[in-house]
Design a protein around this nucleic acid. Structure first.
Length: 840
DNA sequence: TGATCCCGCCAACGT
DNA sequence: ACGTTGGCGGGATCA
């Protein structure tokens, strides 16, 4: 036993060195290992020891242990050491109590080992911070570091006070897509170049213009927005209550990730990252301490991301010297825009193009801010180029191929030695699960579409074998970016995600979030699939309406089983009807009534509903779609489609008879949006531009989109974003624009979108704006963004919301079984997955 | 030594 | 008041 568990720990304290030096002996110097109880160490979840230990306060106990143990430790260490050697030989790894053992990276591995990469919806993967802290034997503070980063990736979401829900990598691809998009919007690429340029200049000392320009462009606009944008968000739910300022870590983490996603080489040095992150507020003059602090934080984030295998450390050799940097080793994120299905696995999307389009978009969006132009002095450009070239010389180590699932072995190899063992262990365990899931996904995706992603595995077809379940899961999981096929029904459909499909809501302005919340509730979404399986997503919506609140509470629970979720839902609100069918009907009816117009959807129509979250970060909407499509009846689809088109033009209002609450629920669903939703906080107008940018990409046609203010108001109110009395004007606006569902429609808009055209239908996008806009602004925002690939609509999602006005809902929510307070805040959120199903 | 980054104080916020 | 979150930076370790 000792072997297993401890190996890690003790092993060489710091590393091999120690071991070598004092292999047997006691570690005089540092009491290395003080560690706590040995047994516990093994990250094994089970470790009872931990429990025991936990009894004492963590710190105290840890310290005491250290002291006490130190003596023993040496012995232990030796033993372990031996063992280790046997085991792996060299790698004794780090286990000791040494600093490394305590590293965030290792801790994160342990943490991750406790949960599957692709948890099934059914399980209640909820995380109790206290428990985790105890089990892992660390102070809670450390767990926050991990969780915060995971939150930024939507791998976890906060449910309540000490609770978080584990989503694993299901939403990862979407999140990454959203982040990429935002990063592009923010022009991080340019910012990076500027920074580099500056550095370069400094060295050589150029003239002034550069500085000024850069500074300006840099400083002024975008960042600020960006920052806000980034607020960390969680996936679906907003769970959060995020009150605090969600500042740093979460946001920082997202930004950091964005940098990788927009960088061509996908390598980002800490220095540059720190500057950009800081820069947002203040241009360059960073003060040193600030810079230093930022770097520290980046290390924290990087450790977690590294544990996730999204990045790995490398060194960039520039003119100056080597600089620590990180290379993205995560999945490639397809640009939305792009065309669809490529088969290439590799990444090679036309970055330049995308950027360009983006830029344009941004310009369009923010016309006023002209400054943005990137600086483009010729001379500068040259510099930049040269720099970049240098940059490319990075030494990165091996990169691991990536992602997807690589086989276990590969993954292992990739890991650093130290961690490797540990990780490996954990991973192995986990991998089984994740791997399977991945495979399934892959298969599915492939079969469905041929995505590009990268899946190593090639199996083209989905196998039916496990299928039922698997398929579902796959759907749930969201495959990495794949594309989507649109398609029809069933099978492939699910695959949710595709990048293109990504919809996300951006909430700008963190602080605002509160505010936002206020007025807006959230609304959300629904998903449906789960319940019925595929069936009626929409129906769900209706249900949702009814009980949204309840659901939320359920959601955790619900998550597990769609079925259950339903029931749960029922109880609260609905109760009876429960059957999903009914829901569906209702929902359908509502939808139809309400709204919606349809658009053409064809099969593809996605149905989807979206949700908006008030939360502050980027939220990818997940969707659940899986079932939906299939589930939906044609009519629904039709109805939906129709709605959209008209929607703005004519407010739904007339149509809707339903109660507000219903509307809320319904509306969204009705809308069916697949596309993006963006919420801006009112305050941050500045932010707006950002948003717009995103939209930009898509481009668009401006067309018609402008909704009249009245419409907006109406919509918003119904949706619950704003209180009934409130008028939009200054407030948020909601709109949605349909893009064409089909390519054609889109096409007109811009070339950017071209690609899309070919492919499938496009999705529609809706935006929610919370800040005051002018009409003119508004228009710009409206522009539809079409995802590149249209994917299917996936959608579903979650739902719920809270409204300011709707205390009821809220309260009910709060009632959740969990007891969590999540809702208390008003936000709601719902279980995304609940419906999902998966499982099967 | 510079690169990393653990540790934990203590403030902000919630309850 | 107390508990939860988590910003922040000193200073210990690592390389």
């Amino acid at each position: 036993r000792s072997v297993l568990k401890t190996p890690l720990k003790q092993a060489a304290t710091s590393h091999s060195v120690l071991t070598e030096i004092q292999p047997d002996c006691q570690p005089l110097t540092t009491p290395p290992k003080p560690k706590e109880i040995l047994p516990a160490d093994p990250w094994t979840p089970t470790s009872n020891l931990k429990m025991l230990i936990s009894a004492a306060s963590p710190e105290i106990r840890s310290r005491e242990q250290r002291r006490e143990l130190s003596n023993n430790t040496s012995e232990v260490l030796q033993a372990k050491h031996c063992l280790q050697e046997h085991l792996s030989g060299d790698e004794y790894e780090k286990s000791q109590p040494s600093r490394k053992e305590k590293s965030l990276g290792l801790l994160c591995h342990k943490f991750l080992a406790r949960y599957p990469d692709y948890p099934s919806t059914a399980e209640n993967n909820y995380i109790c911070l206290d428990e985790v802290a105890e089990e892992l034997n660390v102070e809670r503070r450390r767990i926050y570091d991990i969780v915060n980063v995971l939150e930024s990736l939507h791998m976890v979401s906060r449910l309540a006070k000490n609770r978080y829900a584990w989503h694993g990598r299901h939403n990862l691809s979407k999140t990454l897509q959203a982040l990429k998009k935002v990063g592009e919007e923010n022009k991080y690429t340019q910012q990076i170049q500027m920074i580099k340029k500056r550095e370069y200049e400094h060295e050589f000392d150029f003239e002034g213009e550069r500085n000024e320009e850069t500074a300006r462009s840099f400083g002024s606009n975008e960042h600020s927005e960006m920052s806000f944008v980034e607020l960390p968000g969680m996936e679906f739910r907003a769970a959060s209550v995020n009150s605090r300022k969600d500042k740093s870590l979460r946001v920082m983490s997202q930004k950091f990730v964005m940098l990788f996603l927009v960088s061509t080489p996908q390598i980002v040095s800490l220095e540059v990252a720190a500057k950009i992150l800081i820069g947002e507020d203040q241009l360059e003059d960073l003060d040193k301490s600030k810079f230093k602090t930022k770097i520290r934080r980046l290390y924290d984030i990087a450790n977690v991301l590294s544990s996730l295998e999204l990045i790995k450390k490398v060194h960039v050799t520039e003119e100056r010297g080597r600089k620590p940097a990180f290379k993205w080793t995560g999945p490639e994120v397809l640009p939305n825009i792009q065309d669809t299905k490529l088969e290439t696995t590799s990444t090679t999307p036309p970055i330049s193009e995308s950027i360009t389009s983006k830029e344009q978009c941004s310009k369009n969006l923010f016309p006023s801010r002209g400054k943005q132009n990137f600086t483009r002095h010729p001379s500068l450009i040259k510099l930049v180029k040269s720099i970049e070239n240098d940059r490319r010389k990075i030494q990165s180590a091996p990169t691991s191929p990536v992602k997807i699932s690589a086989s276990t072995d590969q993954n292992l190899s990739a890991f650093p030695n130290k961690m490797a063992q540990v990780t490996a262990i954990a991973k192995h365990q986990l991998e089984g699960q994740s791997k399977k899931a991945k495979e399934m996904k892959m298969k599915l995706s492939r079969s469905a579409l041929e995505c590009n992603l990268s899946s190593p595995e090639v199996v083209p077809k989905p196998e039916p074998p496990r299928t039922a379940a698997p398929s579902q899961q796959a759907a749930l999981t969201q495959p990495l970016g794949v594309c989507p096929p649109s398609h029809s029904s069933v099978s492939p459909v699910i695959l949710p995600h595709t990048h293109s499909g990504v919809s996300y809501a951006i909430y700008l302005h963190p602080s605002q979030a509160h505010t936002v919340t206020t007025y807006s509730p959230s609304f959300m979404l629904q998903p449906l699939p789960p319940c019925a399986n595929v069936t009626g997503i929409k129906s769900i919506n209706s249900k949702v309406l009814n009980k949204i609140a309840t659901e939320e509470g359920d959601n955790q629970i619900a998550t597990d089983d769609p079925t259950k979720s339903l029931t749960a839902k029922e109880r609260p609100t609905i109760k009876s009807e429960t059957s999903s069918q009914r829901c569906l009907k209702r929902s359908q009816a509502l939808q139809e009534n309400n709204l919606i117009k349809r658009y053409r959807s064809d099969e593809e129509s996605l149905d989807t509903s979206l949700t908006f979250f008030p939360s502050g970060y980027l939220i990818p909407l997940t969707q659940c779609t899986h079932g939906n499509k299939a589930g939906f009846s044609d009519k629904e689809k039709a109805g939906i489609c129709s709605l959209q088109h008209t929607t703005y033009s004519s407010p739904i209002a007339g149509v809707i008879p339903v109660t507000a609450s219903e509307l809320k629920a319904v509306n969204i669903p009705a809308f069916h949006i697949t596309p993006l939703n963006i919420m801006l906080s009112p305050t941050s107008i500045a932010a707006a531009p950002v948003l717009s940018n995103s939209c930009l990409n898509s481009s668009n046609t401006s067309s018609a989109q402008n909704p009249s203010s009245s419409v907006l108001n109406f919509t918003l109110q119904h949706v619950g974003l704003i209180p009934a009395g409130v008028q939009v004007p200054a407030n948020p606006v909601l709109q949605h624009m349909p893009v064409s569902s089909q390519p054609e429609n889109v096409s007109h808009s811009s070339e950017n979108m071209n690609l899309q055209e070919e492919k499938k239908p496009k999705t529609r996008i809706y935006f929610l704006l919370s800040f005051p806009l002018n009409e003119s602004n508004f228009l710009s925002f409206l522009q539809p963004c079409v995802p590149k690939e249209p994917q299917e609509p996936r959608t579903v999602t979650e739902n719920f919301f809270r409204t300011p006005g709707g205390p009821n809902t809220v309260s009910s929510l709060s009632a959740n079984s969990d007891g969590t307070d999540r809702i208390s805040q008003g936000t709601l959120y719902i279980p995304q997955r609940k419906l999902e199903v998966s499982e099967d």
